[in-house]
Nucleic acid binder design. Structure first.
Length: 208
DNA sequence: CGGCTGATGATCT
DNA sequence: GATCATCAGCCGG
């Protein structure tokens, strides 16, 4: 596996959200490699009320305004870190939230950082995966295409199918279908009805 | 399984 | 002072 090159990343944030499925997020520290296959993402776009960059640049969200491929890591709900990949040209402000991973390497080390029993619960949520991999505010602004500790790696096997739904946990712009996930992955977050793909029927997108 | 709730602290108004 | 891109545990069916 090698680093993803910036030139490989789609220039459009929504395309990036889909592109990142099946790629790997890697943490190399203390001689140990933690890695996971990205199975769920959400796009936060230019002009999107739910995007942290919507109201302009502040000390907190500055990393969203770095050119695509940089980490935007922020702290929320008093306990959790969330990680995004910036998605546009410099100064624009958009990104992709990494919502779930399929643990690949360093599973024992990740389990040690998490107070949870089943491997399936290790990284199936945005706050869970950062805890499992030790991603915190120190990694805010890191260039994921060049960094030696935290980086994006090429995919291993192909993505079988991609499902989509509304984004999770939002109040503003809650109706937009900008969440993407590997349809048959058991490592995706959220309730099952959000994760089901209707299949080859007239409708597209989940019910409700 | 789905639904609800308390915890917890930075950020911005 | 309200809000928040969450989580784990608990409860009922």
């Amino acid at each position: 596996m090698r680093h993803l090159r910036r030139s490989e990343l789609p220039v459009d944030t929504e395309e990036l959200a889909k592109f990142l499925l099946g790629k790997q997020l890697v943490m190399d520290r203390f001689g140990i490699r933690l890695s996971g296959r990205i199975v769920e993402t959400e796009a936060y776009l230019i002009g999107d009320e739910a995007c942290h960059a919507f109201r302009g640049e502040t000390p907190r969200n500055g990393s969203l305004f770095l050119r695509r491929g940089h980490a935007y890591v922020y702290f929320i709900y008093g306990s959790y870190f969330m990680m995004n990949v910036s998605g546009e040209a410099a100064a624009l402000g958009a990104g992709v939230l990494i919502r779930a991973l399929e643990p690949i390497q360093g599973i024992a080390a990740m389990a040690r950082r998490r107070r949870v029993k089943r491997v399936a619960d290790l990284t199936n949520g945005p706050g869970k995966l950062t805890a499992a991999m030790g991603i915190d505010a120190r990694f805010d602004g890191v260039d994921l295409c060049t960094d030696k500790r935290l980086w994006l790696g090429t995919g291993t096997r192909a993505v079988r199918g991609v499902g989509s739904s509304v984004r999770i946990g939002l109040t503003r712009a809650a109706e937009r279908t900008l969440r993407f996930f590997e349809s048959d992955s058991p490592f995706v977050s959220g309730p099952r009805w959000l994760n089901s793909t209707p299949g080859p029927s007239p409708k597209s997108g989940p019910e409700r």
